[in-house]
Every structure is written in structure tokens, then in C-alpha cells.
């Protein structure tokens, strides 16, 4: 066990935990944002640099501070480490810089982006970004690429977190896409123009922190905050079958995996569940999915509406009893 202090909060965590995961164990404001790290994907993290923190004391043995800001997702805690996240101005300044870098070439097409409302970059931008851009040049664009029937790749929005390549490496039997070119022309691509098609490829959509990979079957059907998320499950031979249905009326518009409060999937689901089972009758509905109250999705109060549903049968029985007595 290692004793570590993050933003003045002391905690004890198992050895080998990363600073980010240590902070997540406590939760709240001290958790650094993460755009590329994904706890369920091995090797992810360290790329986006939004989770940079300051280590003001390396460890109890070697109390020297670390010379540079370190990525909290890939730096393991040491016993006696003191970490500053939101209490350090350097960190906030650097984070602001990183968010600006991520946004300068981002198309900012949120009004037409299916990810809007559940986009990590949007949240990050609202929290740390500037209201005005200092970037005057034309934004970078890529040629449109078709990567198959189910997944829409919109490369202009990509922040190159590499999560989708890890998904393909670690969940599917064959990775057919990757990063080609370098620098700010690096892009996710299937070389040359292949379709991504295998049973678990749909998880790329869920792990994508931005709207670069979206569900073609859901494309432009509704804004996410007009839909109501319902936990549901079914017997699936390939995966756990535990999903969230995004419904509008009685129509299932979209099926996704269940995400925790850090936007990570609890369990990966298969493409059959995701793309093919679009009828309520395919699913056993468990009840409304709780979405954080700060999310725009909660603003349509689907949970409350569900709670005040009147149980007519119960009332009828009560009335009948009263009549019988009377």
C-alpha cells in the first residue's frame, strides 16, 4: 500500500496504482480529466496530456519534486507522493493549453454532431477552454472515408487518442485500421479503404471520446438529450447482453454499452446487440439509466417522469374495494 496525497486529500492505495486511478478511488473534483486513457484498454493513455498533474514530492524516500508535469494516467504512485491537480496553477494553465490545442483544429460542428451532449471534448472545453479562439488559420480537414455500414468515421473531429486502435487490437481478432501519416496529418484510416467489420468493432464508437466514430444506424435520428436511456438486457451468446437502449417513445433509436461516470464502458457489447436488435421486444427492460444530473441528457427528466407513472391497476383495485365495502 502506498500513501499518497492528492490536492491535500490523503489516501492509501495499492502499489502500482496510477495517480489517475488513485484520484478516481476518491472521486470528485480532484480527478484529472482523461481523453485518451481507458482503464479497460491496455497500453492506452499518456497521449492527450489533459491529465497532467504536478508531483510536488516524489516519494517519502526521495522527496524531490518531479521536474515536469506528469501524465497522471501513466505515472504510478509512490509511497509518500504529493500530487497537485486543481490546486496547482501550473497544471490548470497547462490543461488550458492542451484543451486549446485539441480544439484549434476541431471543426466545432457540435450542432450537427451526434456525439454532442455526451462528448468528452465538449465537457472539457466548457470547463477549461477559452470562449474565443486564438487560431486564425483554416482548420485542418481530411477527406471523407467510408469504413463500413455501421460505423461513421468523421476524421476532422478526431483527437487521436488511439483508443479505437486498442479496441481493435484487444477485442477483435483482426485490426484493420490504424494511424497513418504523422504530425497533424496523422489520421485513423483503413489502409487502403477497407471496411471495419467484425463482431466487436462497434465498441470503437463507445470508446471514442469525441464524435469521430459514431453509429450510422443512429445518425441524425435524434439529439441524445431528446431520448431516454433505459437499462436493458437480453440473452446474447457473444457478449453479456447488458446495454442501454436510447428510446424515443417506444422506438429504440440506438443501443450502446453501459458507461460509468468516467465515460468508460462497464462491459463491451457485440455488434449484434448494438446494431441489429432495435425493437423493444428484443430486450428485457430494467428501468431508466441514471445519468449524471449535470449532463444535458438528464435535462429532459426522463427519470422523474418514469417515477410518477400512475399505477392504474392499483387504483382500480382500491376503488373496487371501496365500492364493495360501501
Amino acid at each position: 500500500m502506498a500513501k499518497v496525497t492528492i490536492d491535500g486529500l490523503e489516501m492509501e492505495v495499492p502499489d502500482g496504482t496510477s495517480i489517475l486511478n488513485a484520484a478516481r478511488m476518491v472521486g470528485g473534483d480532484i480527478v484529472p480529466p482523461a481523453m485518451c486513457y481507458y482503464s479497460k484498454l491496455k497500453g492506452s493513455g499518456g497521449k492527450c496530456r489533459t491529465c497532467l498533474v504536478k508531483v510536488s514530492q516524489g516519494s517519502a524516500k526521495d522527496p524531490r519534486p518531479m521536474p515536469k508535469l506528469v501524465p497522471s494516467c501513466s505515472t504510478t504512485v509512490q509511497d509518500g507522493m504529493v500530487v497537485e491537480n486543481i490546486t496547482s496553477l501550473d497544471v490548470l494553465e497547462a490543461r488550458k493549453g492542451v484543451v486549446e490545442f485539441l480544439l484549434i483544429n476541431h471543426p466545432l460542428d457540435c450542432p450537427v454532431c451526434d456525439q454532442a451532449g455526451e462528448c468528452d471534448l465538449q465537457n472539457l472545453g466548457y470547463k477549461h477552454g477559452l470562449a474565443k479562439t486564438r487560431y486564425e488559420e483554416e482548420r485542418r480537414t481530411f477527406e471523407k472515408a467510408d469504413i463500413g455500414d455501421n460505423i461513421k468515421l468523421h476524421m476532422n473531429r478526431c483527437i487521436l487518442c488511439y483508443r479505437c486502435t486498442y479496441v481493435a487490437d484487444q477485442l477483435t481478432d483482426c485490426r484493420s485500421h490504424g494511424v497513418i501519416n504523422r504530425g497533424d496529418h496523422a489520421e485513423i484510416s483503413t489502409y487502403i479503404s477497407k471496411a471495419i467489420d467484425n463482431d466487436f468493432s462497434g465498441n470503437m464508437i463507445d470508446v471514442c471520446p469525441v464524435g469521430a466514430l459514431t453509429d450510422k444506424t443512429f445518425r441524425f435520428s435524434s439529439r441524445v438529450w431528446f431520448t431516454k436511456p433505459m437499462d436493458a438486457h437480453r440473452d446474447c451468446k457473444k457478449c453479456s447482453g447488458k446495454v442501454v437502449l436510447w428510446e424515443k417513445g417506444n422506438e429504440v433509436l440506438r443501443v450502446t454499452g453501459r458507461k460509468d461516470k468516467y465515460g468508460e464502458l462497464e462491459e463491451f457489447i457485440c455488434n449484434e446487440c448494438r446494431f441489429e436488435k432495435k425493437n423493444t421486444s428484443d430486450w428485457v427492460i430494467e428501468g431508466p439509466r441514471h445519468i449524471d444530473k449535470h449532463s444535458v441528457i438528464s435535462q429532459n427528466h426522463y427519470e422523474l417522469l418514469n417515477n410518477i407513472k400512475v399505477d392504474i391497476v392499483k387504483y382500480q383495485k382500491q376503488v373496487a374495494e371501496r365500492v364493495n365495502k360501501g
Binding site: 492527450c48 490545442f101 484549434i104 504523422r182 497533424d184
Partner: peptide, 9 residues
């Protein structure tokens, strides 16, 4: 190389 955002952008 385009791996991390500050340098890439």
C-alpha cells in the same frame, strides 16, 4: 509524430 496533442497541434 502526432502522438500527443501539444506537439501535434
Amino acid at each position: 509524430c502526432g502522438q500527443c496533442s501539444p506537439c501535434r497541434e
